[in-house]
Amino acid sequence: MAQRIDVKDLNIYYGDFLAVQDVSMTVEPKSVTAFIGPSGCGKSTFLRTLNRMHEVIPGARVEGKVELEGVDLYGADVDPVAVRRTVGMVFQRPNPFPTMSIRDNVLAGVKLNNRRISKADAEDLVESSLRGANLWNEVKDRLEKPGSGLSGGQQQRLCIARAIAVKPQVLLMDEPCSALDPISTIAIEDLIGDLKQEYTIVIVTHNMQQAARVSDRTAFFNIAGTGKPGKLIEMDDTATIFSSPAEKSTEDYVSGRFG
């Protein structure tokens, strides 16, 4: 199920403004890759190019390639909606649909994609997705209650269940724990460790300890100053990035000297 991502010479624009410059990297399947770096360096912008969410902003565009198992996601014959089915996304703040039940939240992506599904299959999918998000035991007796009635950490796991219900190959997570308390954060981090057995996971985080705990590889982005494009400074095994990075700016960032 998990798939490899190859990014080649990617430049990301908002109109004429070059926001992220000349990024090349490989994201390995069945692994967790963390993007770190100071605010404004393009981490989240780059993350959104991996499932073509960037281009929903008027004037936004990319140059270069993003390949999923050799298929260019920006190819002329590629449907961006199909890309977003294959490459799911979990956002910074939990965003369950407030008027929908827990069950309907899980099934929302499936229904939006016009997939016909029998009632029995739908029930199986709800259970398997909630189990996959480590939420089933907490909500199995209140599936008809609104998803918005759950705690923040539970809502975020519900959003993860909604994302995996459409059976993606890749999960993108944009600071998924930044709005959560420490106990909920630990639950999400444990879940990420479980999910990487089946998915390719990319996470943006400002929490250095979190990056060190959950990721296999880490990419450090930086920016030379206001109005300058963000750049990928280096990418390596997480242990190497945090113990003996190649670049001094990486060492300064992970040690807390700036950022």
Rank of each mutant, 00 (worst) to 15 (best):
R4T: 13
I5H: 13
D6I: 10
D6G: 00
D6W: 04
D9C: 04
L10K: 04
N11V: 00
F17P: 06
V20F: 04
Q21D: 13
S24C: 08
T26C: 08
P29K: 08
S31H: 05
V32F: 07
A34F: 00
F35Y: 15
G40V: 13
C41I: 11
K43A: 13
T45N: 11
T49A: 10
M53C: 08
E55I: 15
G70F: 10
D72I: 03
V78L: 00
D79F: 12
R85K: 15
V87E: 10
V90M: 06
Q92E: 06
F97I: 13
F97S: 07
T99K: 10
I102M: 10
N105S: 10
V106D: 04
V106L: 06
R116Y: 05
K119C: 00
K119Y: 10
D121G: 11
E127F: 15
S128C: 00
S129V: 10
L130R: 12
G132M: 10
G132A: 12
A133S: 11
L135R: 11
W136C: 09
W136S: 14
N137I: 03
N137M: 10
P146R: 15
G147E: 06
S148R: 10
S151E: 09
G153C: 06
Q154M: 14
C159S: 02
A163V: 11
I164D: 08
P168T: 12
V170S: 11
L171D: 14
L172G: 12
C177I: 01
S178D: 07
A179P: 02
D181P: 02
I183C: 01
L195M: 10
K196V: 09
K196Y: 07
Q197P: 03
Q197C: 00
Y199K: 06
V204T: 05
N207G: 07
N207E: 14
M208G: 02
M208Q: 05
Q209W: 14
A212P: 05
S215P: 04
N222Q: 07
G225P: 09
G230M: 08
K231V: 14
L232Q: 02
D236F: 02
T238Y: 03
I241Y: 01
F242Q: 03
S244I: 00
P245A: 08
A246W: 01
E247V: 08
F258R: 15
